[in-house]
Structure formats: C-alpha cells, structure tokens
Computed example of a mutant assay.
Amino acid sequence: MTVVDARPDHLAVAARFADAPEQWPVAPRFNPVDRWYHRLHVADDHEVWLLTWLPGQGTEWHDHGGSAGAFHVFGGTLTEDTVALTDGRPPRVTSRELGEGAGRRFGSHHVHRMTNRSHRPAISVHVYGPALTTMTKYRLGAASLEVLTVERAGAQW
C-alpha cells in the first residue's frame, strides 16, 4: 500500500504564485514605516501571502505557530537568519542570502528572522500550511530563545 502525502508542496505553491504576478489581486506596495503584507490566497490546508521589504526592514525572531511552509523571493534580496539550539551550548546563528528566484522550505518548528540587508526593495511570496493562527516572537539570549509575545491572527495582524 502506498501512502500519499496530500499536503501541498509549499515551495512549489510559492513559486507558482510568484510566476503569475498579473493574477495577484493587489499590486505590491511599500511602506516606509513597516513591512507591507497582503494575503493572496487561502485554501483548506494553506494560505499564501505577499510581502514587501524596503532596505533595512525585517522581522524579529519568530516561529509560525506550528505551521510549516516556504517562501520564494520574487524580487530583490533577503537574508534569512536561523538559530540552532543545542543543550549546553550557546545558540548558533546561520545566515543565508536569497536573491530573486530563490526559495526555501521550512518545517513546523522553524525559528528565523528575515531582513532586507540590500540597498534595493524586495518582494517575497510566503506559504503557510495550515494557515497561520499564531506567531511567537523571541529574543535571542546568550543561552536560549526567550519568548517575547505570542501574536494571534485577526488580533495582531
């Protein structure tokens, strides 16, 4: 008997939306104060978001409340920092720069931050499955991640 994984390939979904900007219900906007975002699509098992990033804009350390997903850089360059925690050792941060056309999958326990460290605006498409209900924001301490807040969909975003 073959077991079929019915979950969508989040990276393929993100790339498919990035490949069809003429079908986006809104044009990307840039906000000099905060990152701009708009939900492009929602299905029973995932949702798709469009985000824009001016130079210097980024997120705090955060997770996706148990949702897995992926992101695809539509334009510009973004830097993703991830953190690895190993008992008894200081947290280890790894940075990866992703340019136009690059993408990355992540699991349901992924903690990261993303920043536009370039001198050009950036646009990205993000897919989360299941749809986001919470996001936990963290502070990176000397020995661990400390929870700052837990934000809820519909209340904080």
Rank of each mutant, 00 (worst) to 15 (best):
P130R: 03
E146T: 10
M1W: 01
T79G: 07
H64Y: 03
A122G: 09
R139I: 00
G65V: 04
L40V: 12
R104I: 07
D44L: 05
T86W: 04
T59Q: 08
L140E: 15
S95K: 04
T149P: 04
R96E: 15
A131L: 09
M135P: 11
L145W: 04
A143S: 13
G88A: 01
E146R: 14
W61F: 05
H110Y: 15
G76V: 03
R105P: 13
P121N: 05
R29T: 01
F71L: 15
R16V: 08
T133G: 08
Q57N: 08
L11I: 06
G99H: 05
A155I: 03
A122C: 09
V48K: 04
A84I: 09
A18Q: 05
T136W: 03
H64L: 12
T133W: 12
A20L: 06
R39S: 10
T134F: 03
G66E: 06
T94C: 05
V33G: 00
A6L: 06
Q156R: 15
P130E: 02
V83M: 11
A15C: 14
H62E: 09
R120F: 07
A102L: 09
G154L: 09
L85R: 12
H109P: 01
R152D: 13
V48N: 04
V13R: 02
Q156G: 15
A122N: 12
F30R: 15
H112S: 14
A122H: 11
R139D: 15
R16M: 10
V48M: 03
H10M: 04
P32L: 05
T52I: 02
A15W: 08
R39A: 06
I123N: 02
L148G: 07
R120D: 13
L11R: 11
D5M: 09
G75A: 07
T115N: 14
V42R: 12
V48E: 04
L132K: 02
A155S: 14
V48R: 03
D5Y: 08
Y138T: 06
E60M: 11
E47I: 03
P55Q: 07
V4H: 00
G129V: 02
V150P: 02
L148W: 02
G129S: 12
A14D: 05
G75Q: 08
L85T: 07
Y138C: 09
G66P: 15
S108D: 05
